[in-house]
């Protein structure tokens, strides 16, 4: 007879990688072996890749102002067209116990969300990187180079070369700053070509696909500018003429890439993704 239990580590990992985040955090308490296994980067990666392919782990993330309480709350719900009320979940916001006056969702990638909050009591502005499923969050350091008041837009992506999440902030003065989470501080990257200034009216956040951040420029409105997250090199993608005419009718966000970005921005993968700390 073969021995059913204890299970081989390989099989334990197969089973655990199919669990949602909450029981995983709980099961760290089962034994030293389980705690080590669940905390391993390899396991995190396995879990994240599984969640990426699992429709059920993708959710809408919505910020809403509670009328009576004068506070912002965040909710998530499934992407299914048949919405059941119990699937709508109010999220525990990262708040240090203080209510927010306003909250802006910039963008999402994997299980991470980049948000800005304006604190009610001490009137401070903070930008946070937040993992709703583990309820971890970190406050981003203030950017060093660009002016706070300058109009800007943000992107969040994963760099497989350095195995790190990176946040890009670009403003209208051609200034681009990158924050690699492992480094913990902002640094300037190559200025984008001056003619490729982003059209902020149509750019809520930068679209991250195929390892690059993308935006539509606001002068000719005929190109998409892409910045590779790994090499930090800019490339230009001309838009087909047909799309330009759509853009002229003030429907710029419906242009294919933007339409996708809209969904992209709202989808969070709620199953896993350890929020990386600094250092």
């Amino acid at each position: 007879m073969m021995h059913s239990v204890p299970l081989q580590e390989e099989i334990t990992m197969e089973i655990l990688s199919r669990l949602p985040v909450q029981p995983l955090l709980r099961f760290k308490c089962v034994s030293t072996c389980w705690m080590t296994l669940i905390s391993e980067p390899y396991f995190t990666l396995k879990h994240r890749n599984r969640a990426k392919n699992d429709q059920n782990s993708q959710k809408f993330l919505v910020s809403r102002k509670d009328l009576l309480e004068d506070e912002f709350s965040l909710y998530c719900s499934s992407l299914s067209s048949v919405q059941r009320i119990e699937e709508v979940q109010k999220l525990d916001c990262p708040s240090n116990g203080k209510p927010w006056r306003s909250c802006k969702l910039y963008c999402c990638y994997d299980s991470l969300v980049l948000i800005a909050v304006f604190n009610y009591c001490d009137k401070t502005n903070q930008r946070l990187l937040w993992n709703p499923s583990t309820r971890e969050s970190i406050v981003l350091p203030d950017q060093k180079f660009s002016l706070e008041r300058c109009w800007c837009t943000w992107g969040l992506g994963y760099d497989s070369v350095s195995d790190d999440y990176k946040i890009l902030k670009i403003d209208l003065e051609s200034c681009s700053e990158i924050l690699a989470l492992k480094s913990g501080s902002w640094r300037l990257t190559n200025n984008y070509p001056i003619g490729n200034r982003p059209d902020l009216l149509c750019t809520e956040s930068l679209v991250f696909v195929h390892g690059a951040f993308h935006w539509i420029d606001n002068i000719s409105r005929s190109t998409v500018t892409a910045l590779s997250i790994s090499s930090e090199v800019y490339t230009e993608i001309p838009l087909p003429e047909k799309m330009l005419s759509i853009y002229d009718h003030k429907c710029g966000r419906l242009v294919s890439v933007w339409q996708k970005s809209f969904v992209f921005m709202l989808i969070i993968r709620l199953k896993w993704g350890t929020l990386l700390g600094f250092g």
Binding site: V5, F27, V30, S31
Partner: peptide, 17 residues
């Protein structure tokens, strides 16, 4: 396993804490 308590999991899988 999803909704099980830590104690239940240990017992089900015969894992010593």
């Amino acid at each position: 396993l999803k909704n099980k308590s830590v104690r239940a999991v240990r017992e089900m899988l015969k894992i010593t804490n």
